[in-house]
Nucleic acid binder design. Sequence first.
DNA 1: ACATCTCCTGGGGAACACGA
DNA 2: TCGTGTTCCCCAGGAGATGT
Length: 231
Amino acid sequence: MILPEPLFSGKLIQRYKRFLADIELETGEIITAHCANPGSMIGLLQNGSQVLVSKSQDPKRKFPFSWELIKIGETWVVVNTANTNRVIHEALLKNQIPELIGYSEIKPEAVWGDHTRFDFLLRKESDQCFVEVKNVTLAENIIALFPDSITQRGTKHLNELMEVVRKGHRAVMCFLVSREDCQLFKPAAHIDLVYSETLRKAQENGVEVLVYQAKISPPQITVDYPLKFEL
DNA sequence: ACATCTCCTGGGGAACACGA
DNA sequence: TCGTGTTCCCCAGGAGATGT
């Protein structure tokens, strides 16, 4: 996918109220950008780090700037979680994920049950495959980790993916590692043990786990290659 | 006192209702 | 058959209310 252009470069001043961040652009102008990542973002909030923001033309938006990427060391990290789904959507359309090719229909935001939506539903005649995507931004010593804080929603999604399998469908948990300085993916048991154990249990019960490395070359973000993982 | 529930944040996308 | 508006849920966790 291509990020909305032009992208504006700046430095992070502070992130606050979960959805907002103050950023000093290269012009010296200080703007407040929307941060479409309400997670804890551990390790990504180094004040003074280089960031890239895009600007929406939607007059109804309260904060026209969207925070897209932050540079940590030598790697860009994808902040805007909406991009993750766009990257995977594009990869599905282009058959770039071998485990998920051969489906005739790709439906985003697929409803499951009364209160759940999975990121994608892939269909081929009567075959159904539900796919949930997660953006992985936390890393410690070349190991990509998820989640970056306790996530009851994430655990709920895993339990519902197991239900998908019980009902005779295919269920896939797909992690996209949105930084380029990792060689392995693991669940962050020291952060959320319940999630970590549920992920392992989900795999044992037929939920397929995929981990892919993203290639981040602003303004382009694509799926690169499968990353090794240990559950 | 502690646990659980609900609401709230801003933007985005899908489904649905409705009027032209 | 369009376009527009509304509702719901997604992202995740904090705050406050409610229940045990």
